[in-house]
């Protein structure tokens, strides 16, 4: 358990850091709770994998993958794709909010020109 202590410490510290970053973001309460539970599971699994590397290989072999490292790569690929999908959705959402906000500003300026604004001449719409 204590051979190669350096890399194990580095990886554990990294996981703790990511954990803190992820739990600090805010969202809906239920959504957040689910995410936190998943995160706790992930942390435990990651810590186990670091402390007992053969365990990962054993798990890999039970699911029919040669090495533990391969299993990690596959897991990472799936996670990455999930991340891409989630961030695309989030981007669209932000874009939409941005558009609504920008449109509101543009229309407010045009319909009720601010004094001194060069925007939207005093053209009275009918």
């Amino acid at each position: 358990m204590l051979d190669q202590p350096l890399i194990k410490v580095i990886l554990l510290v990294g996981i703790v850091g990511v954990t803190i970053l992820l739990t600090r973001s805010t969202a809906g309460a239920r959504h957040q709770a689910v995410r936190r539970l998943l995160l706790v599971g992930f942390v435990l699994l990651a810590a186990m994998a670091i402390l007992f590397p053969p365990l990962l290989t054993q798990v890999a072999q039970t699911v029919g993958v040669g090495r533990g490292a391969d299993l990690l790569l596959y897991g990472l690929t799936i996670t990455f794709l999930g991340y891409v999908a989630a961030s695309y959705r989030r981007m669209r959402q932000l874009e939409q909010q941005n558009t609504v906000l920008a449109r509101h500003i543009a229309l407010s300026d045009a319909i009720r020109p601010r004094p001194g604004s060069t925007n939207g001449s005093a053209h009275d719409p009918r």
Binding site: T99, A102, L107, A110, N119, G120, H123
Partner: peptide, 14 residues
């Protein structure tokens, strides 16, 4: 024309 100005570029649909 009456001109409504977007604060930044949003695209033709917008």
């Amino acid at each position: 024309a009456v001109v409504v100005t977007h604060p930044f570029n949003l695209g033709q649909g917008a």
